[in-house]
Design a protein around this nucleic acid. Sequence first.
DNA 1: GATGAAAGTTACTCAAG
DNA 2: CTTGAGTAACTTTCATC
Lengths: 174, 174
Amino acid sequence: MDQNTDDVRRKRPPERDLDAMDRKLLGVLVEDATTSYAELGERVGLSPPAAHERVKRLRRSGAIRRVSALIDPDAVGKTLLAFVHVDTTGWGKTQALLAIEECPEVEEIHSVAGDTCMLLKVRTESTHALEGLLARLYDTPGVKATRSYVVLSTYLERPVQPGTTSDWPAVVKG
Amino acid sequence: MDQNTDDVRRKRPPERDLDAMDRKLLGVLVEDATTSYAELGERVGLSPPAAHERVKRLRRSGAIRRVSALIDPDAVGKTLLAFVHVDTTGWGKTQALLAIEECPEVEEIHSVAGDTCMLLKVRTESTHALEGLLARLYDTPGVKATRSYVVLSTYLERPVQPGTTSDWPAVVKG
DNA sequence: GATGAAAGTTACTCAAG
DNA sequence: CTTGAGTAACTTTCATC
């Protein structure tokens, strides 16, 4: 189909499904990937070599995509966060539209189902920079309209978590 | 576009503003935080001790929030991504609403300006799990309505980037 | 998997230019 | 900031049970 999605969605054969131990390891490494294998094993109930072996497998299988330094947006001057809905004429997944991924301010590009076509997560230094990005969007062929949701406060922002609600011991519902 | 020179906004503990070298270091560490200080220094044009000293400062100042293992959503079974707009009666920043951060499926919670109050980024294993989350939202006092944008394809998803478009020497237009 | 041990890197600190 | 040196710590592998 298209090769544009190859960087984001790696289709790898999952050799084995992740068990509870793998999830615990991932949980620790998501919080702090600098954890040594000694402490890692201790926190999940495994010997250091066993922990190392499993983490190595998690990396090789692609379950761990990469180890990244998460930086404070304010520290690099990016104080403005916004979600931009993009309406297009026809099918919005054009090469020209996806080209905005070259802007470091654009952190996410999704096609969505709903009353809009594409959804962008954008982090800029200022409203002026956001305006520049919107201007570029409107210059893109096929872009009909945009709707921006400027973030006032962020209460939670974290990476993909290995756990699910169903992992909880009990779910209390009324 | 020139930026104001008397722009003195020291609200955090950044002792000094990040220079170009710090941004280059961050750029490398965002891509791969396992890079050794030897290679790190080589790639930015610094000696290993100098690179180490700067990275240590970046961590201490909070510019590097944490080093995290970014995991593949598919590997942990989270194949469904959705953005949920939440409309509330009155001011939506209630304690009850923010309590959903306990769900590992909820990755982001923002209050936004626009035709909605709160914006959630949610990643679940299935549509059924998403339904369960929406049910919990509707059980929350003050929640009037929700609008979900289910992601069909993700074309880009990356952490906060240290660079900006203005860093570029020239802007290439398609 | 657990244990123990070995070898190679790297982190980290400190000297001096 | 650079070079160089040095120790401690960790990674990584392997042989053993």
